Computed example of a mutant assay.
Amino acid sequence: MSRSVVIVAFPDAELLDIACPSDVLDVANRHGARPRYDIRLASLDGKPIRCQSGLTLAAQLRLDRLREPLDTLIVAGGTGHEDAARDPRFITHVRRVAGLSRRVASVCTGATVLAAAGLLNNRRATTHWRYAGRLARAYPEVTVDPSPLYVRDGHVYTGAGVTSGLDLTLALVEEDHGPSLAREVARSLVTYLQRPGNQAQVSMFLAAPPPENRVIADLAAHIAGRLDEDLSTPALAGRAGLSVRQLTRLFSEHLGRTPGKHVRAVRTEAASQLLATTDLPLSAVARRCGFGSTETLRQAFLEHYGTPPSAYRRVHRKT
Rank of each mutant, 00 (worst) to 15 (best):
R3Q: 11
S4L: 12
I7D: 08
V8H: 09
D12K: 03
E14P: 00
C20Y: 01
C20G: 10
P21Q: 07
D23C: 01
V24M: 01
D26F: 05
H31S: 02
G32E: 05
D38M: 13
D45Y: 11
P48G: 08
I49T: 07
C51L: 13
G54H: 05
T56L: 03
Q60D: 13
Q60M: 09
Q60I: 04
E68H: 06
P69Q: 11
G78E: 05
E82L: 13
R89E: 13
R89I: 09
F90Q: 07
V94S: 02
R95Y: 07
A98N: 04
R103Y: 05
V104K: 09
V107D: 13
V107L: 12
V107C: 14
V113P: 03
L114Q: 07
A117C: 04
L120S: 08
N122D: 15
R124I: 08
T127C: 14
W129M: 11
Y131H: 13
L135N: 04
T158N: 08
G159S: 15
A160H: 02
G161I: 10
S164K: 00
L166T: 01
L166F: 12
L170F: 01
E174R: 05
E175I: 00
L181P: 08
A182N: 03
V190C: 02
T191Y: 06
T191Q: 01
L193F: 00
G197F: 03
Q199E: 14
F205P: 00
L206P: 00
A207L: 14
P209I: 10
P210W: 06
E212Y: 13
N213P: 05
I216V: 15
I216N: 14
A221T: 15
A224N: 11
R226P: 02
S232Q: 04
S232P: 03
A237G: 06
R239D: 04
G241D: 05
G241A: 10
S243V: 07
L247S: 03
L247M: 09
L247Q: 08
L250Y: 12
L250I: 03
G256Y: 08
G260Q: 13
G260K: 12
H262A: 13
A265Q: 11
T268Q: 02
T268H: 00
L275C: 09
T277N: 10
D279Q: 09
L280A: 10
L280C: 01
A284T: 12
R287L: 11
G290W: 03
G292D: 15
S293T: 14
S293N: 12
T296W: 08
Q299H: 12
A300L: 04
A300M: 06
Y305F: 14
G306R: 09
Y312N: 08
Y312P: 01
V315S: 08
V315L: 12
H316P: 00
H316V: 07
